[in-house]
Design a binder for these strands. Structure first.
Length: 395
DNA sequence: TCTGGGGTCCTAGGACCC
DNA sequence: TCTGGGGTCCTAGGACCC
């Protein structure tokens, strides 16, 4: 989806179309933004002057989405609000409204499912679609089906998207960025050399800042330069799995299927404080935040019908270093008090001298609530994981 | 100018078991 | 004195993605 959060906001506030605007900020920014909005009238009647501007904010936080006009000022996703305010102080800033984005996320995904049932969820604003067996999916290299999907989403939601069509997920993902916004790119196998090899390695889904840096140190800037290296050389320098993978992707090879169903592995809640807190001096405040996070995770688990048995905490110190601790208990739970209690034990094992910037709570090792795994006593759970020979000897 | 929140997957060492 | 070879689970950290 194109500038998804911002585009959803523009459906509510069409008067902001064409203006530089960013979505983001922590809770404090959200509160201030809401306070600045006048009451009464429909949302579309609110005058542009009434909307908060970036220059009015000094809060912590990053930009989740910037409209295309804002991007012209050099503003981008994940950029700190402070930096963005320097680049374009007059840009409008709106708080993140996740519930609203989720509504539109469900809507556009349903449109796709009605056309092409093999869809993989890749987060709130992105999916993979298997065109292989969709009627007309092969016509014009997939372009006509892509057009149909684009138009259907626009008709149903008012939102635009960009689609890449290719023989596999790796190339399709890169192709989807070739013609943004509202574009379609079809990339064939034979286009590898002309359209993929010139790209910077960083464009490969899975090569992040660290790997890119290391590649650069070897003088490898583009996918083509990566493809020119020996498979064995890559394995020597990047490890068996990563090296082999790099070799494959540089040659455009990817056999991952489109996965339509998946179970969550963990659920978590975390929050960055308005100001750094100290474990001793701000003990009461931290305790209240911690309890609240535990309750939120418990709610999430219960609402979605999961239980977990690994409970963990996460801290971010003022110097941005991160510490995590977790503990696996002998039963599954979705209970806020239990999570709070075990989480509290985890907190005792972590250094608390430095000021804290963030606190998080996580529950992992999930099972569906009420499933055999989740309800069985620990002993029975263990027996199912015993080697086949041992299990067979029981009979 | 300091840098969100919610995730997944991988690695590596140690405990423990057979 | 020298000390297996698997396997799983747990824990901590880190890279990466949307």
């Amino acid at each position: 989806m194109d500038a998804f959060y911002a585009s959803v906001e523009l459906l509510r506030y069409p008067q902001l179309k064409g203006l530089p605007m960013v979505i983001g900020g922590g809770r404090r920014t959200v509160d201030e933004a809401i306070r600045n909005l006048p009451e009464g009238g429909t949302l579309a009647d609110i005058p542009v002057e009434a909307f908060p501007r970036l220059k009015d904010y000094a809060g912590r936080g990053v930009i989740t989405t910037a409209t295309y006009p804002a991007r012209q000022f050099g503003i981008g996703s994940a950029m700190g609000l402070m930096k963005a305010a320097k680049l374009c102080p007059q840009a409008l800033i709106l708080p993140v409204d996740f519930d609203e984005y989720r509504r539109f996320s469900r809507a556009f995904k349903q449109v796709i499912l009605d056309i092409a049932p093999l869809m993989e969820d890749r987060g709130v604003d992105e999916v993979y679609i298997d065109f292989t067996n969709v009627p007309g999916g092969q016509r014009d290299g997939g372009r006509s089906l892509a057009r149909l999907i684009q138009k259907s989403i626009l008709d149903a939601t008012g939102l635009t998207c960009s689609i890449g069509v290719a023989p596999n997920k790796l190339i399709a993902k890169m192709a989807s960025e070739f013609d943004k916004p509202n574009g379609i790119s079809v990339v064939y196998e034979g286009d590898l050399e002309s359209r993929i090899w010139p790209l910077p390695c960083r464009k490969v889904n899975g090569i992040g800042p660290k790997a890119d840096e290391k590649l650069k140190r070897f003088g490898i800037e583009t996918v083509g330069q990566l493809a020119a290296r020996d498979r064995e050389w890559l394995i020597q320098n990047f490890g068996k799995a990563t090296g082999a993978w790099m070799h494959e992707v540089s040659w455009g090879r990817d056999d991952r299927p489109v996965v339509t169903e998946s179970e969550p592995v963990s659920m978590s809640r975390e929050t960055t404080f308005d100001r750094d807190l100290h474990a001793v001096r701000d003990r009461a405040e931290l305790g209240a935040i911690f309890t609240h996070l535990c309750e939120k995770v418990a709610e999430d688990l219960q609402r979605k019908g999961y239980v977990g048995k690994t409970i963990g905490i996460k801290l971010r110190y003022d110097d941005f270093r991160i510490a995590t601790r977790d503990q696996t208990i002998d039963r599954f739970t979705a209970d806020g008090k239990t999570i709070r209690q075990i989480g509290g034990q985890c907190l005792k094992r972590v250094p608390l001298e430095r000021p804290l910037r963030l606190l998080g709570v996580r529950v992992g090792a999930l099972a569906k609530a009420g499933s055999p795994e989740a309800t069985a006593p620990t002993g029975a759970v263990r027996s199912t994981t015993e080697p086949a020979s041992t299990t067979a000897s029981l009979f």
